[in-house]
Design a protein around this nucleic acid. Structure first.
Lengths: 353, 353
DNA sequence: GCTTCGCCTGTAATCGTTTACGAGAACGAT
DNA sequence: ATCGTTCTCGTAAACGATTACAGGCGAAGC
């Protein structure tokens, strides 16, 4: 009850009649005689001793903290990633620092530089745009960094990625196979890494399937949000007629469905719409959205594991892990004619692998 | 380019031909002669000196870190709160530690205890359940804690809350005024603070409006998630017939709409459904959901501000801030008969105040 | 019985800052 | 010229832990 002074090793040592060294050793599991160890533990618990994190960090040059920087905390796909990272990090007895960087790459560079303060032992970074400045920052970082997202080949940084272009390909093929001929792309900003990849994936798939692809069928939203999706979908529909629409993420897809409905077009009967990311939003939407699971949870988990492993073994070669995209078919792309327009059909249908 | 040793005050001091004290003073804005200050800054920037966070924390007994514990990172309402907290915290030059505690109150108690390590200067906590152990933990906490959510009166802890019972009242009244007679409640677990409050708010509103309220019209989901919402909505519909459904949060509401649609009941024509929390999900959904904005963003912001203020002025009286719930009317509760069933109606309609 | 080895344990240095204290310089007032 | 004030700056002591090093002691080996 008394507002006793915060216990320190010195106090514990005094009470247990041992040296501070012994206290530290016992509490860190170094060998000691059972009798002394017992005295130390007794004294420590009586005083409610808890080692001070700052002092410990200063001495051992390790904070037991990892930082995670995400571009948009609001996007559900980052939420999944975050949760996965948090789970792994916590299990390893590290703390997690969350830093939301804006869409400005300078934020990320600043963050990398700030790591020089030594407040974290490592960083997980998921940059939307990869600029030269960012690459410089990565090269100069004073702690290990794991990048979630695709990096240029040869950058010596641990990295976990997903081939989202291939993911787009899966969707395009699916739409073509279910009878859609005039397929559009509602992309995010094409100067982002995922935007560019999805664009390429789309064009390649259309080419391979021999489908006509005019620029009028491709539009880029200002960012990967619902509002931007609505705006861009509006533009797209003003300029083109289509029966299939591939969206670069689930939020954009929801925006598109929204606009389509407003304009009296039914999903999927008039237009099939697919999302991407495999967020819960796609699952609970009405109609449930076909999407591509890009393994956000896996990527988060793997990123955290890579980072923790690098802390243990700083000298292993940089690793690049790629997770596979997986098509999840739901009602929003049900073939015309077949009874696919009610919400409950196809809720949990998934393609193998 | 050279892997020079990490710069320290001592190195800077040496290079600038001054004492370490002067280096520290200059870099912390204490008065110094312009000439000496210039030399120090020059040397510091040449060496790329960045002060070490651990050492500084140890000395000043402050980490410039704040912790945020949320029960469910997946719930969009926590995402809004988190983002608001992050913004305020970052603006104050603090770092944010994210800790996801499970639904187990023991997790929160353990977290409170772990603060004794001194790794954070304060904590924002949003507990679902308030147990005696938690109250003890709060009382014994070694750093300031701000609780988001309602606490028993008299607990001397800064606290920001919302009267969600009143929020439920707003919805019930709205449903009654738009002609619904048989109104049900799809609640979350009633042993949680928000669950209990919403239950009371519902019963009180029904009573005041003179509406019949049978236990068959009230059901509690296992937690505040989509899946639990589906399950509980199914149970509710098996046992009762209703034309209005108040849900305790937006995820539950989405689950309910889902089940209703599966059973061939139209929203809002057969059953009006409302959510609660005012998340983006309610706005995005088809049909857009009437909901009650519980000010998650405001609560997050205010909690962070309270915490920062308490760090500056530790001795002010504990404060309790209450934010007002605000009804947001959308298509999911459009009156029968009037053309309210298409997605676009009522998208942004809001009641004043 | 004496050396040698190993085990425990304590003394003290160290991590990189901040800051109390004091010494000296500069300056104005008398 | 002397004294007191103010200002600047350096010396050294913290903060609270970990750990290199060494001392002491018992057991084992000869």
């Amino acid at each position: 009850m008394s507002p006793r002074p915060r216990a320190t090793v010195a106090l514990v040592a005094e009470r247990a009649n041992v040296s501070v060294a012994s206290v530290s050793r016992v509490l860190n599991g170094q060998p000691a005689s059972p009798e002394l160890a017992a005295r130390v533990r007794q004294a420590a618990s009586e005083l409610g001793y808890v080692p001070d994190a700052s002092a410990r960090s200063l001495k051992v040059r390790r904070t037991e903290q990892l930082a995670l920087a995400v571009a948009d905390v609001g996007n559900p796909v980052y939420v999944s990633m975050m949760r996965a990272v948090e789970t792994v990090v916590k299990a390893a007895n590290y703390r997690l620092l969350l830093s939301s960087v804006g869409s400005d790459p300078d934020d990320e560079v600043a963050l990398l530089a700030s790591l020089a303060h030594g407040y974290a032992d490592g960083l997980i970074l998921s940059p939307l745009r990869v600029t030269p400045a960012l690459l410089d920052g990565l090269a100069a970082a004073l702690v290990p960094v794991v990048v979630v997202g695709t990096l240029p080949r040869g950058v010596p940084v641990d990295n976990v990625r997903v081939n989202s272009g291939r993911g787009v390909g899966l969707v395009v093929r699916h739409l073509a196979e279910t009878g859609r001929r005039s397929i559009g792309l509602l992309n995010g900003p094409v100067d982002t890494v995922p935007g560019a990849a999805r664009q390429r994936g789309f064009e390649r798939a259309m080419r391979e399937l021999g489908l006509p692809s005019s620029p009028a069928l491709r539009v880029a939203a200002a960012d990967f949000t619902f509002a931007a999706g609505r705006e861009a979908a509006g533009r797209l529909l003003d300029g083109a007629k289509l029966d299939g629409l591939v969206c670069a993420n689930d939020l954009l897809a929801v925006g598109a469905v929204n606009v389509l409905t407003e304009r009296g077009l039914a999903v999927p009967d008039d237009v099939a719409v697919s999302g991407m990311d495999g967020t819960e939003l796609a699952e609970l939407y009405a109609p449930p959205l076909t999407t591509v699971d890009l393994g956000a949870t896996d990527r988060g988990r793997i990123a955290a594991e890579l980072l923790l492993d690098r802390l243990r073994r700083p000298d292993v070669e940089p690793r690049r892990v790629t997770v596979a995209p997986r098509l999840i078919v739901r009602a929003s792309t049900a073939p015309v004619g077949r009874s696919g327009s009610t919400a409950q059909r196809g809720r949990n249908a998934r393609t193998p692998r």
